[in-house]
Design a protein around this nucleic acid. Structure first.
Length: 503
RNA sequence: CGCCCGUUCGUCUAGUUGGUUAGGACGCAAGGUUUUCAUCCUUGAAAUCAGGGGUUCGAAUCCCCUACGGGUGACCA
C-alpha cells in the first residue's frame, strides 16, 4: 500500500459532537495502524457560519481524547497552511483550470433568482435542480455569447463557477465499507465550485486539498456519500488519482429515529459533546464528557466500539491496543443508536482499573471543595474500600461521606427495621466495650465485637445493623470494622452515643 | 418526491468460503456470597435473523420483490 495519509477535516461551525470525534478517532487509528500520517485540516470556507472558538474547541477536544496530529493548524507541516481560509488564493487557479478544460462554467444567476425557481418548482411539487436540462435556460457561460460573458466578467458582475456534470454516464465508485456504488449522472446537479465571494465551496477546496496534501484515504461520515459521485467526477476532471473512500455509518439517537444531534443530550440527560461548550452567541451551555467525569480512555474505548468491533469478545481496549487491532473492514454498515448506559459501564470499568492513589487524588479535589482535609494515606485506604462501587469519582462522596462526618439523619426504613427496644441498651454496653480497646484497628475491633456478641448471645445481624445505623445513618457502606478504624475510637463512641439520644 | 445507503435479542454487536442448540456485552430478572448496601459469582428471560418469494439436500448467509429506517437533494459543510 502507498503511504497512508489521512485527514480529519471539520469545519469550525460549532462544537464537535461525539459522531465527529468518532470519525477523527477512526482516522487516527487507521493512520497509526498503518504507520501513516494524521492531518487536521480546518475547512472554514463558509465565512457566514464561522463560530468563534470552535476551532480551539476541536483541537482541545481531540487532544483530551488522546488523538494526535502529525500535521495540523497548530503543529504545522509540509503542506501548511492547514486552514482553508488561508489557502484561499490557491483555489482559483483550479477553478480556472476546470473552466479551461470545459468541465466547469460561469453562472450569473443571482441567489434570488434561483430561490424563485425553487419556489416555483415547489409549487408544482417538484424540486429545482441546476442540471443538464435547466442549465440550457439559465444565465451562464453555456447559454450566453462569449462577448457577453467577457463583458460580465470585466464588469465584475457577481458570479459563481459551476461544475458541468457529464450527461448520461454512470459514475462507478468503490467504498471500503459499502463496496461498489453506482450512480447515473442524470441524478446529479451542477454544483457550485467557486462562490461569488471569492471562496471555493467545500467540494472544490476539499478535492484540491486532499490532492495537494496527498491524502490516501478519505474516512468520513456517511452524510457525505451522496456527494461522492461529484468528488469522483472532480478527480477525473482534474486528471488526478482519487484517494480511497470509507463512509462511516452515522450515530443515531438512543430513542426514536434520526441522527444524533446537539439537543439530544439535554433532552435525554447525557453528554453529546466531548468537553463543555458555551455558545458564544446565545450563551447556552452544553456539557461534555470530560466535565461529567468520564475518563478520556473510557470515552474513546466506548466510541471505538460503536460501529466497529474487533471480532473477538474483548471489549476493553487501550488506545495502543485499538491501534493494534483496528481495521476498516470491521466497521459495520448500519447506523448505531447511541447507548448512554453502556457508556457509564465503560467508565466504571476504567475507574476500577485506576490505582487507589490516582482515584484518591481526583476525589481530593471534591473534598477540598467541601473543606475536608485528610491524610493521603487514609484517603487511599477509603478509596480502596469503595472504588468498585461507583462509575464516577464524583459519586464517591455518596459512598464515603460517613468517613468524614457523622450522619445528619437516619434512614427511616432502616430505623424501623433495625432499631428496637433493646437497641439503646445494647449499643450503650457496646460503646463501653469498644472504648476499652487499646489498639483500635479492624482486626481487634472485629474480634472484640464477635466475642461480645457471642457472650451475650445476641444476633450478629441485629447488632451489626443497629451499629451501622448509628455510624453510617443508613444500611450501606463497607465493612464496619474498617469504618471504625478509619474514623477512630473517639468518633465511633461519639456517634454511638449521639445516635442513641436521637433515636 | 428523486437519488443513495442500510435492516440479527430493548441497545451495541459476533456470524466474512451457505450446514451454529444463532455466540458475547450493556440493561433487565432470579439465586448465591456479604453483618448492610454495592461489588462479585451463577442462572434466566430476550432475535421464527424486517416480511415475502426464489436458488439449494440445506440460507441469517446467494438472487429478486416489498416494507421500514437512515442520509442527501444550498453561492452549508
Amino acid at each position: 500500500m502507498k503511504n497512508v495519509r489521512v485527514r480529519f477535516a471539520p469545519s469550525p461551525t460549532g462544537p464537535l459532537h461525539i459522531g465527529g470525534v468518532r470519525t477523527a478517532l477512526y482516522n487516527y487509528l487507521f493512520a497509526r495502524k498503518n504507520n501513516g500520517t494524521m492531518i487536521l485540516r480546518i475547512e472554514d470556507t463558509d465565512q457566514a457560519r464561522f463560530v468563534e472558538g470552535a476551532e480551539k474547541y476541536i483541537v482541545e477536544s481531540l487532544a483530551w481524547c488522546g488523538i494526535e496530529f502529525d500535521e495540523s493548524v497548530t503543529v504545522g507541516g509540509p503542506h501548511a497552511p492547514y486552514r482553508q481560509s488561508e489557502r484561499k488564493e490557491l483555489y482559483k487557479q483550479y477553478s480556472d483550470q476546470l473552466i479551461a478544460s470545459g468541465n466547469a462554467y460561469y453562472a450569473f444567476d443571482t441567489p434570488e433568482e434561483l430561490e424563485q425557481k425553487r419556489k416555483e418548482a415547489e409549487a408544482e411539487k417538484k424540486i429545482f435542480t441546476y442540471n443538464a436540462e435547466s442549465r440550457k435556460y439559465l444565465c451562464n457561460s453555456l447559454t450566453m455569447s462569449k462577448q457577453d460573458v467577457d463583458k460580465y466578467l470585466n464588469e465584475d458582475v457577481p458570479h459563481v463557477v459551476r461544475f458541468l456534470i457529464p450527461e448520461k454516464t454512470e459514475v462507478l465508485m468503490y467504498d471500503i465499507i459499502r463496496g461498489k456504488v453506482v450512480v447515473q449522472t442524470e441524478s446529479l446537479d451542477d454544483k457550485v465550485l467557486f462562490k461569488s465571494d471569492g471562496m471555493p465551496t467545500y467540494h472544490l477546496a476539499n478535492i484540491v486539498d486532499d490532492h495537494l496534501m496527498e491524502i490516501s484515504h478519505v474516512i468520513r461520515g456517511e452524510e457525505w456519500l451522496p456527494s461522492l459521485p461529484l468528488h469522483i467526477l472532480l478527480y477525473q476532471a482534474f486528471g488526478w488519482e482519487a484517494p480511497e473512500f470509507a463512509h462511516l455509518p452515522l450515530l443515531l439517537k438512543p430513542d426514536g429515529n434520526g441522527k444524533l444531534s446537539k439537543r439530544d443530550g439535554d433532552r435525554l440527560g447525557f453528554p453529546v459533546f466531548p468537553i463543555d461548550w458555551i455558545d458564544p452567541v446565545s450563551g447556552e451551555k452544553y456539557t461534555g464528557y470530560r466535565e461529567s467525569g468520564y475518563y478520556p480512555d473510557a470515552f474513546v474505548n466506548m466510541l471505538a466500539l460503536l460501529g466497529w468491533n474487533p471480532g473477538t469478545e474483548q471489549e476493553i481496549f487501550s488506545m495502543d491496543e485499538l491501534i493494534q487491532v483496528f481495521s476498516l473492514d470491521r466497521v459495520g454498515k448500519s447506523g448505531s443508536k447511541f447507548d448512554p448506559e453502556k457508556t457509564k459501564w465503560f467508565n466504571h470499568q476504567y475507574l476500577i482499573k485506576q490505582s487507589n492513589e490516582a482515584v484518591a487524588n481526583d476525589f481530593n479535589v471534591i473534598l477540598k471543595e467541601k473543606s475536608i482535609e485528610i491524610k493521603t494515606e487514609k484517603m487511599v485506604k477509603i478509596v480502596s474500600l469503595v472504588k468498585e462501587r461507583v462509575p464516577f469519582v464524583k459519586d464517591l462522596w455518596n459512598e464515603t461521606y460517613f468517613f468524614f462526618e457523622a450522619p445528619q439523619s437516619y434512614d427511616e426504613q432502616v430505623v424501623k427495621k433495625r432499631w428496637n427496644e433493646n437497641s439503646a441498651q445494647q449499643m450503650t454496653d457496646l460503646a463501653t466495650k469498644l472504648s476499652a480497646i487499646e489498639a483500635f484497628e479492624t482486626v481487634t475491633i472485629d474480634q472484640t465485637l464477635k466475642e461480645w456478641i457471642e457472650q451475650n448471645q445476641f444476633g450478629m445481624g441485629a447488632i451489626m445493623n443497629a451499629l451501622r445505623l448509628l455510624l453510617v445513618g443508613a444500611a450501606k457502606g463497607p465493612h464496619l470494622g474498617d469504618i471504625m478504624e478509619i474514623i477512630g475510637k473517639e468518633e465511633t463512641i461519639d456517634r454511638i452515643n449521639s445516635g442513641i439520644n436521637k433515636l
